[in-house]
Nucleic acid binder design. Sequence first.
DNA 1: TTCTCGATGTGTACACTGCCCACAACAGCG
DNA 2: CGCTGTTGTGGGCAGTGTACACATCGAGAA
Lengths: 213, 213
Amino acid sequence: MSDDPENPGRTTYRHGDLRGALIAAGVEMAREGGPRAVVLREATRRAGVSPNAAYRHFADRAALLHAVSDTCLGFAADRIQQALDEHPPTGDAEADARMALRAVGLGYIAFAREEPGLFRTAFSVPDDLRQAMSPAKAGRNGLTPFQLVGGALDALVAAGVIPPERRENAEFLAWAAVHGLGMLVIDGPLRGLDDRMIDYSTDRLLDMVDRGL
Amino acid sequence: MSDDPENPGRTTYRHGDLRGALIAAGVEMAREGGPRAVVLREATRRAGVSPNAAYRHFADRAALLHAVSDTCLGFAADRIQQALDEHPPTGDAEADARMALRAVGLGYIAFAREEPGLFRTAFSVPDDLRQAMSPAKAGRNGLTPFQLVGGALDALVAAGVIPPERRENAEFLAWAAVHGLGMLVIDGPLRGLDDRMIDYSTDRLLDMVDRGL
DNA sequence: TTCTCGATGTGTACACTGCCCACAACAGCG
DNA sequence: CGCTGTTGTGGGCAGTGTACACATCGAGAA
């Protein structure tokens, strides 16, 4: 029995929302230590439940990690949406479309920098195109990061900035650039560079995408 | 230095090159299962040695993984060099410089696709700028992947393709794009796409870098 | 109302991991 | 020859994932 004041020991035999509690605990561990820190037994401990109870809701540790990863992708979507909200449209369709794609990138990088553990966890699980738009990976706005990038690109086509024949699969190019920068910043050679330097590199990378798409 | 690779039971008390054998075993495990599959005890088992012997050569599992990761980066450098060799200079300095940067990207992506486990392992260990050029991460040509990208960019500046003021930190932009694509291909939404599709995306990404740098 | 049953949580157990400690064997030195 | 520091061994501990049998209980059937 845990006498944790924040997590009162339950009185009922049933937990109520053990699945959700395990995911929440997993997210908390992922926040501090990345995907490797998501430990099944520790999650059950935090939920005040015996280790094997987890197996009523997840086939194995990988399944739990997958659910945690999806949740993290939703958080990424939220952060991207926040960046979009910070750059409201001005009325100039072309400039707005450009700025929206930029905002998606800025939100993505911001998420990587603010929550490196969650960022790593979000992308620690193999994924494929079919599942990239699964609602489980969506944020509060109901969209996944992948769909947010796609939306920004559609707007660029609608505004005439990108010719339609370049639209196809452009998600992958934009995403690759931004995702790569995110990795380099939290785990790669850019780690520990001062903030201004990273801001500058982010700007230049987004310039490159803007020019090169 | 590297004889008797398949010696089940050694006769001498000393192993001879246990450190190297452990790294080699680690690389083999990484090849099949990525960084998570690099397990210390299994490495000692494959080296025909007791578990604790590893601690005479590595402080802990993280240290072994780090050494394996460095080795993998060297393999990446080798694959990039191979791609460079496959596109020999034609005499046109400008076209050659462009092609060299392209070849670096192609080699990088080829490595990710051919050896996903080693690729993941190479970048599973936190790193910073100071260590990006450590000789431990170099390939047979003595250069690290980071240095190979840098060289290609220097050639682009020398050929007048890139203005010098855009040279600084351009490594990060080119690297981010290619690295991101590599991750998307082996772990992300592009996983399982057919080869032609990936080739096409790679081409378009390198176009973007070429245009956008 | 009572009974049953499927869903959910518990207890025990096993194989495996990383890592700590004390000890054993040996190569290279005087 | 003996000493000594390096390298490998053996036993042990805490912690992990997970398989199996069992306990508890909520809800629908009788």
